[in-house]
Amino acid sequence: MTNGYLPFEKPLIELRDKIVELKKFTEEKAIDLSEEIATLEKKAEKLEKEIYGNLTTWQKVQIARHTSRPTTLFYIRSIFTDFMEMHGDRLYGDDPAIIGGIAKLDGRPVTVIGHERGTDTKDKIARNFGLPHPEGYRKALRLMQQANKFGRPIITFIDTQGAYPGIEAEERGQSEAIARNLREMAGFSVPIICVVTGEGGSGGALGIGVGNRLLMLEHAYYSVISPEGAAAILWRDASKAQQAAEALKITSADLKSLGVIDEIVPEPKGGAHRNPDQQAAYIKKAIVKHLNSLLKLTPEELVEDRYQKYARIGRYLEPASKGSR
C-alpha cells in the first residue's frame, strides 16, 4: 500500500517485481532468461486484464478514494488554460472545499467549478477534505450566475464524500444552499456539463451537479448514501460496506443503465492516478464533444433539454391512467 497499490492489485505487483528482478539478473549474470521473461510478461498482461477488467464495486470505490487520485485543481490546470480562481460567496466566507473561476477551453471562455479535496495532508485539512459548507455552494451559485449572465458554459467537477455535517453548516443553511443550487442550475440558459471524477457523495455532490450532460469517470461512484452509512442502517454494521456498495448500484456502468449519466469516461489501466495526464485528456475529449453538441442549442432549448433530462429519471409503474391530469 505504501507505493499506492491497492490490496487486490498485489498479485500483479508481485509478478511485475519478479519480471524486473529477472531482467536485472539477465543483465548482471549475462544469462539469457528472455523466454521466461516473455512468459511472465504474457502472464502479467493476462492477469492485468483479469483484475482491471472485472473490478468489483468495492474495488472501484477504493480506486475512487485513492489518495493519489487526481483532484479538481489538477484537471482544471490540465484541461483549461488561463484559469483565474475567484473567491467567496459575498455573504459569509470563502470555502476552499469548492473552487471555481473562469478559464478557457480551447480558447473559449468557460466557468469551472469543482469540489477540491486537497493533495497533501496540510492542504486536505485546509480544504476540509472536500466536504463543503453552505458558503461553498453559495460561491458556486454566484459563479454560475455570473456565467449565465455572460453566456459562458459551466463545467463542474464532482468529487466529495458529501456536504459537511457540522453545527455551523446547519446553522447557515446547508439544506437551503444545496436546494437553491438545484433549482437555479435547472434554470440557467447556458450549457452545463458535470463530471463525476471521484466520489459522488449524495446531496453534497448534486449541489453542483445539475447539468445538461452528466459524465462519470469509469471507476468513480455516485450514491444517495455512502456505502458505510447504508451498511450501518441496513445491518447496523458499517463493516458491511462492501455489500451495501453492491446493493446500492453506484458504479458508472450502473448509472448508465439506470439512465442517470450520459457517458462513461474511460480511465487508464488501474485508475486515473496511474496516468493523470492521460485521464485529463480523456475528460477533455468528452467535455469538448458534449459542449460542441450543446452549443447548437438555443438558450431556451438548453433549459428545456436539462428539464427533460431530469424529468425522465426514475422508475415507477403507472397503471392505465384514469386521466387525472
Binding site: A186, G187, V260, Y307
Partner: peptide, 23 residues
C-alpha cells in the same frame, strides 16, 4: 430524506422536483 432503496434514482428526484419548482 431520499429513499436509500432506490439508490441514485432517489437522489435525482431532488433535481427533478427542484427543476419543476424552478419553472
Amino acid at each position: 430524506g431520499a429513499r436509500m432503496q432506490e439508490g441514485v434514482l432517489s437522489l435525482m428526484q431532488m433535481a427533478k422536483t427542484s427543476a419543476a419548482l424552478e419553472k
